[in-house]
Design a protein around this nucleic acid. Sequence first.
DNA 1: TAACCCTATGGAAACGTTTCCATGACAAGG
DNA 2: CCTTGTCATGGAAACGTTTCCATAGGGTTA
Lengths: 361, 361
Amino acid sequence: MPGMADKGDSGVRRAGTGPGRRTGRPATIKDVAAAAGVGIATVSRVFSGGSVSPETRERVLAAAGELDYRPSAVGRSLKLQRTGGIGVIVPDVTDPFCADLVAGVLDCARTLGEHVLLDAAHGDGEREAGIADRMMEQRVDGIIVVPGGDPAAWHALVAAGGWVVSVDREIAGPPEIPAVLIDDRAGVRALVEYLVGLGHRRIAFLGAAGPGEPAGVRETAFRDTLARLGVPVADDLVVAARPERDSAYAAAAGLLQRQAEVPAVLASGHLLGEAAVLVARELDLRVPADVSIAMMGDVPWAELCDPPLTAVARPGYDAGYRACELLVRDRARRAPGAPVVLPAELMIRGSCGPPRSRRGR
Amino acid sequence: MPGMADKGDSGVRRAGTGPGRRTGRPATIKDVAAAAGVGIATVSRVFSGGSVSPETRERVLAAAGELDYRPSAVGRSLKLQRTGGIGVIVPDVTDPFCADLVAGVLDCARTLGEHVLLDAAHGDGEREAGIADRMMEQRVDGIIVVPGGDPAAWHALVAAGGWVVSVDREIAGPPEIPAVLIDDRAGVRALVEYLVGLGHRRIAFLGAAGPGEPAGVRETAFRDTLARLGVPVADDLVVAARPERDSAYAAAAGLLQRQAEVPAVLASGHLLGEAAVLVARELDLRVPADVSIAMMGDVPWAELCDPPLTAVARPGYDAGYRACELLVRDRARRAPGAPVVLPAELMIRGSCGPPRSRRGR
DNA sequence: TAACCCTATGGAAACGTTTCCATGACAAGG
DNA sequence: CCTTGTCATGGAAACGTTTCCATAGGGTTA
């Protein structure tokens, strides 16, 4: 035989006693049964909580320890038709919001005894569908997704018996798909009201465009709030960028350069906010003296900025936790009902101030 | 029934032919075989790439489409004794380094056709071992871990036939466990040389302490480099914090308050760096005029700081990618060999300058 | 003492795959 | 015409569990 290992491995398996660690195939329930002199049913009962006489249980446990037996989840899953795994699909694990979300799912899953399969779709609908397909093949108990792709793909998936909870974005129905959302509408409204309260009447909106970006709700909230407050929307100050660093930067630069006087910028995402800060610094604009900046999505660096950035905190962790609960626990009651909406919180820091024209007064 | 959905959902199942989506148990290979009038072996061959006559393949595919059959990965895994899953255990998914690492693993896993199980141990050895145990039960093909727990637990796991690659920290051998490390030694050295080159001779070191923290190597590198450069180490300026925000903050505050004159701070982690920046601002110390700050671990906000923070970038993505390759691809050649060491890169920005006493000259 | 119940246990049948092996058809070569 | 080889195909045996059902033994009750 070529590639013969240098030691051990010769006897197919070292049977019997002694703390012999074998490196061969892991022990199966059959091995344990044989070693303990009982039937496999009894071993199974010991490990999955059936009723076994104390002494037998003892013997089985001893044998199992000897062989360091570990029940195979794949055998169990096959029999039980349930894996105890839940799939999570996010656009990008390194995005702070997504990372929070994953952390929330992880914590909740742990309390529910589930494990988590993770993948990132990077905003690519094809890829997202592929990942979901694979997860279905793995027979996950359900999927939590921040969707970016075709609603139809998700409808097909639930039609095929899959369970899905969407987070942060809704999948257009019907059928209704349970969702956990964040109240961006209220967040944007608070921000706009704050800026208007400071005296701003020309507010720029740095929005997100691109595949699967539901920028709509934030921009709509922006316009609506302005309208309600009787402040005209400066359409030339509403620009959109793809959710990448350079696109965000370009958009911010275009905005802040184009208008000699852009007194306030509302960035609809943290990437946009970052771009705005960078561009403002580049252009030697003082914040908030020359320009006020605020953004949707609180991130660690918002506090570290100088001045610290006013932002709307979006509870990613809670959203993930809640989505997981919804998926696993509330599955029994079938009707998805209205989406769960989590509040966003306005964190007022130092990056917004009265507009220049007013400061003089 | 309460909460009845407004449409659809009435017919329990449309049986038989037509594109009727059933919501019952997913179709099995047997169903497809029956529908196509062939044996299950043939269906299996169609899906796992055996040789089948074109027309039969056609028929099988049609039947499969009709039933929207999806091969069960758990059935396959059971037979194949291989799941195609790899486990990833990090201290905290929301930490930027860990998130990068996970992203790297994800990308590599995708190219290798593997999927990823993720969990977070939060620096708790018990928890880490529990997670690893569960992953072994899931029969993952291998585990990638940023270890914080007892080396013995990992040794037991590989003795039991598990495959492990550690990242960022080594698991003390023997047996050797393959590792992907980052050259923090060189990173710290570069940073110290830079600071000394600027004229600093009193450099504070904000280190990490706590369970599983291998702070040793960074602090050692710090002391060694200073020694090599003939600069005395100010022992009272070497402090340690647990890897949490408040502890980091306390340590930084203690350091910067205690010494009226602390000209330079080297933070051994981004949390410590953040704390230093915050404290410096609180104490109205100007950076870098009053105090120079630099840290290990580059994070998005380092560029956003004012001034932008000099830091050593640690390639988390690459480490994750490499670890995954090591785990899955290089498994054949058994000997782990020396750990893979990835270079760290010093990113010089604006947060360090000459010490006060020298600025005058 | 007989009838009975209760508990502990083991056998065996799934669960959904892959793959070895046998079978049958058919073509080519003697 | 018989032999041999090739190819497509199906049957059946794993893979490691859980769980239904049957059985045996011992204790309780009539």
